[in-house]
């Protein structure tokens, strides 16, 4: 029974978790809008979702415990935990200091991603209501 509930909610749950990870990437881009030589990064969401759904049954890769902020996480910084590559954004108008963050693009994507996250939450909420209706009859 629990496994079926899990299956019913898995797709939306995976999508939400990826949206949250993308939000973190975009927040990093915005925070580093003035950092010399920083390159803006993003993921291809459909590839990421495919990868995450394909790997969702398996436990995620083992991680080293980090007890201080300076410790290396042990994971590959160029991929998400499920192996999706984290790409670099193509610069339309690069800065002289080597920074490729376009603040407008990032803010746009950030708001878009936040809205899609909330849409995902609404969908999960509706799914839970449906399941509850089925349970209560």
């Amino acid at each position: 029974m629990v496994g079926k509930l899990d299956d019913a909610l898995r797709f939306q749950q995976t999508a939400l978790s990826l949206r949250a990870q993308r939000q973190e990437l975009l927040a990093s881009n915005i925070a580093n809008a003035d950092t010399p030589n920083y390159k803006a990064r993003d993921i291809d969401f459909s590839t990421a979702l495919k990868n995450a759904l394909a790997n969702s049954g398996e436990p995620s890769a083992a991680r080293l415990t980090t007890s201080a902020p300076a410790h290396l996480a042990g994971g590959n910084p160029n991929t998400l935990p499920d192996g999706t590559p984290v790409l670099y954004r193509n610069a339309t108008q690069g800065n002289v200091d080597g920074n490729t963050v376009d603040a407008d693009v990032e803010r746009n994507q950030f708001t878009d991603n936040a809205l899609r996250y909330e849409a995902g939450l609404t969908l999960i909420g509706a799914q839970i209501k449906n399941l509850l209706a089925a349970v209560q009859g």
């Binding site: 990437l25 927040a27 990064r41 980090t66 994971g75």
Partner: peptide, 8 residues
């Protein structure tokens, strides 16, 4: 953070 987060 543990993942791709990058601060300044």
């Amino acid at each position: 953070g543990p993942q791709q987060g990058t601060g300044v």
